[in-house]
Simulated scan of single mutants.
Amino acid sequence: MRVVLLRGSNEHGEGSSMPFGDRDEAGRRLAGRLAGYRTADAVVLGVPRGGVPVARRVAEALDAPLDVIVVRRLRVPDHPELGLGAVAEADVRIIDDEVVFRTGVGERDLAAAEERARAELAEQAARLRAARSRVDVAGRTAIVVDDGAATGTSTHAACRVAREQGASRVVLALPVAPPEALRRLAEVVDEIVCLETPLALPSIGEWYRDFDEVRDADVAALLGATPAPRTG
């Protein structure tokens, strides 16, 4: 497993607390470091919602098809700020056993949370892709792109989806993530390219001057603006 850390940062960003103007800039900077992945079999997969504007710039630079991997967080009942884990396409499921233990969430509540998340996931995937078919990643290099990873739970699930769908190589590309999250993510990918690695990352938005909400309609528009996916 190869990890390419293109700029190690301390907790304060080596004097720069806002290294990215917005997701578009982050995507351009990340794309500039991914030129070596411009191959005929490359597929770029954005993690909705915020990862898709970043992924769009990477896909353009690599002349690769763009698709999404839809992930939904599992929340503790009555405490939505706490994450139990995540579910994703391809029946991927990640549970944070420590949170389950600390909160006392039972199997029934966990199953109910997963059922709701699965229904929301299916609806969101349909909205985002509209009439487009999912890009087949089997036997190809899947470049999974997010706008950052604080804990890495959703990004971890997305990378597992790419693997489950048969990608021959899974490359994770991130503008920013702390070392601890990268260590966990290294378990499910072949390579990681990360621009900024602060020791702590309470919020991804802290590393962007403009971190406006990305809507499903914005993601669908970005996907609709890409050329028809290559299937071979």
Rank of each mutant, 00 (worst) to 15 (best):
G51Y: 05
G51W: 03
G51P: 07
G51H: 00
V52C: 05
V52F: 11
V52Q: 02
V52P: 00
V54S: 07
V54K: 00
A55R: 07
A55P: 04
R56G: 02
R56Y: 14
R57Q: 07
R57W: 00
V58S: 05
A59D: 01
A59V: 00
A59W: 00
E60H: 01
D63I: 11
D63G: 00
D63E: 15
I69W: 03
V70G: 14
V70C: 15
V71Q: 09
R72A: 04
R73G: 08
R73Q: 12
L74N: 08
L74I: 00
R75C: 10
V76L: 06
V76Y: 06
P77G: 01
D78W: 12
D78K: 05
H79T: 13
P80T: 01
P80N: 05
E81M: 05
L82K: 11
G83V: 15
G83R: 13
G83K: 10
G83E: 15
G85K: 09
G85P: 09
G85W: 01
V87W: 00
A88E: 04
E89W: 10
E89V: 07
E89H: 04
A90G: 08
D91C: 12
D91N: 15
D91I: 09
D91E: 15
V92L: 06
R93T: 14
R93Q: 13
I94P: 11
D96S: 14
D96A: 12
D96K: 12
D97F: 09
D97Y: 13
D97E: 15
E98N: 14
E98C: 10
E98W: 07
V99N: 13
V99L: 14
F101P: 04
